[in-house]
Simulated scan of single mutants.
Amino acid sequence: MKVSRTRNAGQASSDSLECPVAQWLRLAAGLSQEELAERANIHRTYVSQIERGLKSPTLVMVFRLAKALGTIPSKILKQLESDLGMS
C-alpha cells in the first residue's frame, strides 16, 4: 500500500514523533490505531494523541511502537530526522 505523506491543514508540526511519521508508518503497515495499540500494549487514545502531536513518546515507547509496526526504532528516528531537515 502506498501512503502519501503530504501534510493537511490542521495537522500538527513535526516537533515530536507525530503525524506524518507515526501515522504514515501505521498506515503503511496496514494497521488501525486500535490494532497498533493492541500490538504495542498501549491505549488506542495514546496512539491518536501521538499522531496528533498531543503526546511525545518516550524512547522506550518508540521501541515498543517500532516492534509493533514490524520495523526498527532507527527507521522511525531517521525519518523524523529527515522530516526535521537534520539529515
Rank of each mutant, 00 (worst) to 15 (best):
E38N: 06
L59M: 11
K67Y: 09
S82G: 08
K55A: 15
A28W: 04
L36R: 09
L25Y: 07
A66R: 02
A29S: 13
E51N: 06
V3S: 05
V3T: 09
S82Q: 13
S14N: 10
L36M: 14
T71N: 07
L80M: 14
R7N: 04
A22F: 02
T45L: 08
D15C: 06
N8Y: 08
L77M: 15
M1S: 15
E51S: 06
S48P: 03
D15S: 09
K2W: 08
R52G: 09
Y46A: 11
S56E: 12
R52P: 00
E81N: 15
I50M: 07
L27K: 12
S74N: 09
Q11R: 11
D15H: 08
A22H: 00
A40Y: 01
L69Y: 05
M61K: 13
S74R: 12
A40P: 02
S87I: 13
A40M: 02
M86C: 12
K67L: 13
G30I: 01
A40S: 04
V47M: 01
R64V: 01
P57H: 07
M1V: 10
E81M: 15
L25E: 03
W24Q: 04
G30S: 03
I42P: 04
I72R: 15
T45W: 05
L65K: 00
Q49P: 01
I50K: 00
N41W: 11
L17Q: 06
Q33E: 11
K2L: 10
R5T: 14
G70T: 00
L36D: 05
L27H: 07
E38K: 08
Q79Y: 10
M61I: 09
L65V: 03
V47E: 01
A28P: 02
S13R: 14
A12K: 04
L77P: 07
N8W: 04
A9L: 14
N8C: 06
L65D: 00
W24C: 06
D83V: 09
S4N: 10
K2Y: 09
E81C: 14
V3Y: 05
L36T: 07
R44D: 01
L27W: 07
